[in-house]
Amino acid sequence: MKRKDGLAMKLAMLALATALVVHGHCAFAQGAAPDPTAAANGYVDAPHNWQMWFPAAGSPMQARIDWLMKYVLWIMAGVVGFVAILLGYVLIRFRAGRHPKPSQTTHNTLIEIIWVVVPCIILAIIIIPSIHLIYYEANASDPYMTVTVTGHQWYWEYKYNAVPGLDYSSYMIPDDQIKPGEIRRLSVDHPLVLPVGKKIRFVITSADVLHGFYLPSLGVQKYAIPGTDLTSWTTIEKPGTYFGQCNQICGMDHDAMPIEIKAVPLKDYLAWTKIALANYTDNTVSSPLSSPMPRNQLADATR
């Protein structure tokens, strides 16, 4: 009994020491406090080379999109395959060398009815689950929390509606400042931090031109339109890092305003909000070291 306790003690000490080392490496702003978003570093849902399908689903919404995509794509693959076989057969069977005497048939009522009715049935088979998905995606009610996402030329601003004063900007890390572990063109200086397992509503708008808030691994996409608030939502299932990009042309640096999300357990998220509040003043990041370009003065002035 005693011996077992001792072992457990040693293991706990070891774990603590490891944790301290890890924290030391990814020290948050001041370097003193532990980084509450560390839990998101274990799993990175980023695109990989030669990828041929959707990213791994990070939310139930993306899982449903993935399912419907497979469903529709297999049906359409069947249609394309059928047409290809038909076309191949006709081209071989009725080529001039083999079939010198053309028929003059130009009508066949039955077959003409079949090729109207069968596509209608196929469409009905597609439409039913498809409409379910539309309703599912539209239901942003009863969220745990709401984040107001504002697109700017060329960065994203995240305002946590439930945490007064927590409102900051997120810039892409410029190519020449990429550090090991960061992904060029996807990593940002201050990611959006969200709790896992909770329904999060995004209210999406823009301060200047159109932008697109596009999170492929979570199945979220909406335009950011000045003067209009659009709503979407997500529930992130496991702690990890998720990426997105601006997906509506917005000017010179359209390709340089990615979205990075750190999804962490709720208690870590709550711990992070306290640290973030201390570090971020209203809509201004305390250390905008890595801002890739000067803020668009015009855009901010008109807001």
Binding site: Q62, I65, M69, V72, S130, L133, Y136, E137, V220
Partner: peptide, 8 residues
């Protein structure tokens, strides 16, 4: 054409 898929 599937609005739900178009979101992706």
């Amino acid at each position: 054409a599937n609005a739900g898929l178009d979101q992706e």
